[in-house]
Simulated assay, not measured.
Amino acid sequence: MKYTKRHKAIILLADGTIFHGKSIGKQGSAFGEVCFNTGATGYQEVITDPSYFGQLMVATTAHLGSYGTHKDEVESDAIQIAGLICKNFSFNYSRPAADASLEEFLDKYDLFAISDVDTRALVSYIRDNGAMNAVISTEVDNIEALKKQLADVPEMKGLELASKVSTKAPYFVGDENATYRVSALDLGIKRNILRNLAKKDVYIKVFPYDATYEQMDAFKPDGFFISNGPGDPEPLESAITLTKEIMKHNRPLFGICLGHQIIALANGISTYKMNNGHRGINHPVKNLITGKGEITSQNHGFAINREETENHPDIEITHVHLNDHTVAGLRMKSKNVFSVQYHPEASPGPNDANYLFDQFIENIKKK
């Protein structure tokens, strides 16, 4: 452990509430929507998940950093969160397989983080009052200036962020001689989704967030995939238009998380911002088709309207979240289309829902 002077720090919420802590390394400020993740493990995958882009992440587990970091345990090429908040930060790590400490990982990507925060009180407050914009800062004597800067940070509702994290140019994943070919729309795709598809004998071409149906179809895919990602789904007009084209041509389509919301919007089902979202690795879901329960990994702050989904003549709800009964999965009755609101690839999390990748392949075989 290198010696690092700990500076006083604060979390200033948009409603003026303040929580106190200490800086982990660098000094400064970071702005974003504050949210929390309930997973006890998987912090490296979480902070590199593009779905968290622009958010201040509160870790509810009491200790962070104890098993260090590893170069293969990332979901993108960079840290995606705006800042990190935790209770106890471990500057040392004990896992033999780790190649760096979490402190070194944060320093490498210049991420501002604070610890020694009463995260139980902070999370309880967010649960009661909803996710909101916030700033974490070592400028503890400059509250009024921070409030003015915070007031200029845009709300997550209505915010299009997929363009910030999507690939700039198409690229390929998997064996080009694989049995199946899939065109994937990158709205903030996780690497483990691509790994899971490649394991199913799939060759994938990944396209930027604003790709057209003609561009994606030129790959001669057997199926289409729409990925997870950050922000509000409603501003993603090009992705919604693309999805309508895929459905019009009755092509096999699978959507995860933000992709699930895009499929709903393409069917005229509205979305809404949740009070504090679902973020963690132990969310209970019931598969209404099989009657079985699943423990799932989730990360989303928006959901689709359940009443509109139930009343849609061509949509069947396939999965529900057992905590709040939100729609966790759907399929179309007349098209080869299905989606889930959670992450079957996990990383981190359980593998209860990994069968959905097999289901996608079976749908492709039926095309």
Rank of each mutant, 00 (worst) to 15 (best):
D128F: 15
L253D: 05
E160S: 08
T17Y: 00
I85G: 05
L84C: 06
K366S: 14
K2I: 11
T48L: 04
E104N: 12
A121Y: 05
K148M: 03
A97R: 13
D118P: 04
S94Y: 12
A59L: 12
P170H: 12
V327Q: 01
S183C: 07
N250E: 15
V173E: 09
S90P: 02
A78R: 12
F112Q: 00
D49E: 08
G28D: 08
R191I: 09
A121Q: 12
D324R: 09
P344L: 08
D232V: 15
D110G: 07
P344H: 10
K157Q: 11
P208I: 11
R6W: 01
I226G: 00
L194T: 08
I256W: 05
R279G: 03
V337N: 02
R6Y: 04
Y43I: 05
S334M: 04
H7Y: 14
Y43K: 11
M1D: 09
V135L: 02
Y125H: 12
A303T: 11
Y93A: 06
E144M: 01
E316S: 12
V34E: 00
S334A: 09
P235D: 06
D358K: 09
Y213H: 10
F36A: 12
T271Q: 02
A98F: 06
F224R: 01
V337H: 02
G188Q: 03
D324P: 04
D141W: 09
E104M: 03
S94M: 09
K157C: 02
T326N: 00
M132C: 10
L84Q: 07
E308S: 02
L146Q: 02
E155N: 14
A266V: 11
E103S: 06
V202F: 00
